[in-house]
């Protein structure tokens, strides 16, 4: 503080991710969402990882929006939206 005293503080636990994929905590912060994404990315990029956040089809994280559109939607989205997400190949060619 300006007068040289020290601020008080509290510690709040927002998220714990266990090795088996289970979680603890309210997950209020956006940082917790980022950490959950990091585990997905770590597990997708490390074939030897025994992590529990691997997408069902890891290759779908490495998509090219101008390639096969069927491979463009990661699985974790499929579980969060109320739409059938089959895709039709209705796309424009990439400009040269």
């Amino acid at each position: 503080m300006p007068d040289g005293t020290l601020a008080s503080y509290t510690i709040t636990l927002d998220l714990v991710v266990f090795a088996d994929g289970s979680m603890f905590g309210p997950k209020w912060s956006s940082e917790s969402d980022e950490v959950l994404g990091m585990f997905q990315g770590i597990d997708a990029a490390n074939p030897s990882s025994k992590g529990t956040f691997r997408a069902k089809k890891p290759c779908e994280l490495n998509i090219n929006p101008l390639d096969d559109p069927v491979a463009s939607i990661p699985d974790f989205i499929l579980s969060t939206v109320p739409l059938c997400m089959l895709l039709a190949g209705n796309r424009k060619p990439h400009p040269p």
Partner: peptide, 30 residues
């Protein structure tokens, strides 16, 4: 595998919130 916690700081006299700092700790290579 990892955790997230937040430290919230307060003025000890007025109890007014000063700021919060969120810490992420995780194993990064699976």
């Amino acid at each position: 595998r990892g955790y997230v916690f937040t430290a919230s700081f307060f003025d000890p006299t007025t109890a007014n919130h000063i700021r919060r700092v969120t810490t992420k700790e995780l194993e990064t290579h699976g």
